[in-house]
Each structure stands twice: as C-alpha cells, then as structure tokens.
Amino acid sequence: MVEKKATILVVDDDQHIRDLIQRVLESADYRVITASSGGEISGKLSSEEIDLVLLDIKMPGMHGFQALELIREKSDIPVIMVTAMDEATTLQHSFNLGADDYVKKPFRTNELLARIHAKLRRSKE
C-alpha cells in the first residue's frame, strides 16, 4: 500500500525561510502548505487535512505562542516550534502551551527532517 503524503503547515513571516523549508520538505516527499502569519492558521486547519505544523515563534501580528494556543484549541496535531529564541524560558513556555518539539535557527536541513519524521511516526502509532 502506498503511504499517503503527509501534509505539513509551515508558518513563518520570513519568505525565504518558508521557501527553504518548503523545498527541503518537498524534496523529502512531504506536501507543504505555507502561511505567513498566525492569522492564516485557522483557515488552513479547517480547509486542509494537516499532519504537522512548523511554527515560528517571533512573528509580527500574532505571536507564535498565541498561534500555538489557537491550534491547541482545535487540534492535537504535532507542532514543532522553529525559533531563533533558544532561551530556556521560551522553550519551556512553548512546551507548556502544547508544543511537541523545537528546532533552533539556524538549523541543519537533516536535523529538521529527522525531527519531523520522528514526530509523524509517533503520531501515527
């Protein structure tokens, strides 16, 4: 049986980072949907079947933490925070709000893929 492509929602205000992640993920055979702000998440979640969210913390408009709370109100899907803010308190707060993992910017593409893969495997079990 051919496994269905997992769909990943990438939320980041930086277009280059969105592009980068999209290309890295697509090359690893994932389906990618992008959003440039937290405000777009709600709509995407209801219109698409999404398996995992990569969420930037520091964004103008809706902050990553708010976006995370919004996601958790609706869904249990894995959320990996992508952040340049690696302070322990920030990370701790993310986990308290329901994040599943984090990737520190700048990241290695291999590391990003490995973490996504691991989370998806667990959520399918």
């Binding site: 930086d14 280059h16 980072i17 980068l20 992640i21 290309r23 890295v24 090359s27 520091k58 340049a84 803010m85 910017k105 700048p106 990241f107 290695r108 593409t109």
Partner: peptide
Amino acid sequence: AHELNNPLTSIIGFSEF
C-alpha cells in the same frame, strides 16, 4: 543576534540544500 539568525538560516539551509 536574533535578527541575524533568520538570514543565516536561509544561507545555511539553501547552500546545504
């Protein structure tokens, strides 16, 4: 430093890619 991390992510990521 935080502001630099975004462009660095792009440079490292794309070049790696």
